[in-house]
Amino acid sequence: MDRILYVASNGAARILEQQSALANNLANTTTTGFRAVLDVYRAVPVQPAAGEMPTRVTTVLASHQAHLGQGAVVETGNALDAAMAGDGWFTVRTPEGEAYTRAGRFTVNDNGELVTATGAVVLSVDGQPIELPERGTPTIAEDGQISALGAGDHPADLQLVGQLKLVNPPAEQLRRRADGLFSLPGSEVAPADERLRILPGFVENSNVEPAAAMVALIANARAFEQHMKFIQTADENDQRSNAILSAAG
């Protein structure tokens, strides 16, 4: 009896965790550059009471990983939009240090700095913010170089204002952060990779497949209901056993 309850309750808890991740993925199907969350679990032994043998194991959430496959790339025509042409990441500044993102829907903040849609400052190859001239006309090249023509300037006065820091650290070293950005362990900094290229005027959509996420949500809900039935059946069997023992006594 105890074993049924143990297995069913443990499975139900893991299903609820997975359901949360799936719901988060589904909610971000339209988020630029979003990477689907993949929960990774591991088995751990249950510490037995004194004098008992360690005969049981349980599962716990080991980490929140990510599906790093590329999402659909769509043209926007926006001069400040950019998508990675294959592998690679844009670099941004956060209070915890450098972080990386595939979301290339950029804009300019009140300080004239290039930022992401969430306000993170985009960094150049020298690790500094990229400042654009006020009311200037920017142009992003495939290698990440950003040029700008100031308001009223002659085309010959086009000036280079910075170059995006594009990086390509090993996928297995990247860690998803709570804010959706990625970073390296120990606040390590990835070096710029000059071989990477971008697609100016495009953005990369989320790599979540809405239909697959919805099917997984339904399957998880059914699995949770099944575990609840196991627990209910175990409780009913326990009550019947108690009734039989009471009658026999």
Rank of each mutant, 00 (worst) to 15 (best):
L132F: 08
I244W: 05
G249D: 11
Q232C: 10
F230K: 00
R195Y: 06
A192P: 11
V108H: 02
N207T: 07
F182Y: 09
Y100T: 00
A99M: 07
R3S: 11
V37H: 10
A211G: 03
Q70S: 11
A216R: 00
G186K: 10
H154P: 02
A36T: 00
T76Q: 01
K229D: 13
G97P: 00
V215E: 02
T30E: 14
D126C: 01
S206C: 10
V73C: 04
E17I: 10
D157M: 09
Q18D: 15
P155M: 14
A216I: 06
D153G: 10
H227M: 15
L80N: 06
L245S: 08
G71M: 13
A148S: 11
G51A: 04
R56D: 13
N78T: 05
P200F: 07
V46I: 09
V122T: 03
A50F: 10
A247F: 10
Q19F: 01
P185F: 13
G186Y: 08
A27V: 14
F106S: 01
N220A: 08
A79I: 06
V60F: 03
Q163I: 14
D2V: 09
Q239H: 13
E131W: 07
L199E: 04
R240Q: 13
S63H: 15
L5G: 01
A23F: 13
R175Y: 05
A85K: 00
V92F: 03
V122D: 01
F34W: 07
S183I: 01
D193T: 08
V122Q: 03
V7R: 10
A219F: 06
Q239P: 06
L5S: 03
E188F: 04
N168K: 07
P129N: 06
D238R: 04
D81M: 01
I231F: 15
R3D: 08
V121S: 04
D143G: 03
G144H: 10
P54K: 10
I4F: 08
L38M: 08
D39Y: 04
G69T: 07
T107I: 04
P200E: 12
N205K: 15
N207P: 09
E236D: 14
G127R: 07
